[in-house]
Computed example of a mutant assay.
Amino acid sequence: MKSSFEKKIIINSIKMRKKDCFLGFFLSVLSTIISFLLTIKNYLSKEETIFLIVFFCLFQVIVQLRFLFGFNADNYKSWNIIFLLFSFFVILIIFFGSVWIMYNLNNNLMKH
């Protein structure tokens, strides 16, 4: 049976976890909207837009790791490193695969 002190700690932890999830979700949506508006409205030059999109992409990755996945300095375990490496590998495959497909489509469709 758990003591009342342990129950308070668990309830506090659940409340903080919900707060972190909502904050992480809000920041992720905000960075997505900003990136979308930068792309659609053409406020800046092409180079500045690409730089800011990459910045907001990295910001969103950090926000999701910290707030949604719960990675922080206090709770850093070895499986977290494995998960990070696997996620990074999957992101690289998706990114470079997309670039390769777009490049080949451009070459094959624009050969006239």
Rank of each mutant, 00 (worst) to 15 (best):
Y76F: 15
V61G: 06
F96M: 01
L68C: 07
F96V: 02
I81L: 14
S31E: 03
T32Q: 05
L27G: 04
T32G: 08
L58W: 11
L52R: 04
W100N: 06
I101Q: 08
F51H: 10
S28T: 15
F36P: 00
F25Q: 04
F88W: 12
F86R: 12
L85Q: 09
I81R: 08
F96H: 03
T49W: 07
V29G: 03
N104D: 10
K41C: 11
F71N: 06
V29I: 15
L85G: 11
L105T: 05
L84H: 09
T49L: 07
I94K: 03
V29Y: 08
L84A: 13
Q64H: 08
F95H: 08
I81T: 12
E48C: 05
G70M: 07
I101Y: 13
S35V: 00
I91S: 04
N104G: 01
Y76S: 13
I93P: 01
F36R: 02
K18A: 06
K18M: 11
K18R: 13
E47N: 13
L37V: 06
F25L: 15
N42W: 04
G70N: 05
F83K: 14
V99S: 07
Y76T: 12
L52E: 03
T32C: 11
L85I: 15
L52T: 03
K41W: 09
Y76V: 09
N72I: 10
S35I: 00
N72V: 07
S78D: 14
S98F: 10
L58I: 12
D20W: 04
I53H: 01
I94E: 04
E48D: 12
L65V: 01
Q60V: 01
F56G: 02
S35E: 00
M16G: 01
K46S: 11
V90E: 00
I40E: 14
Y103W: 10
F36M: 06
L44K: 05
F71T: 03
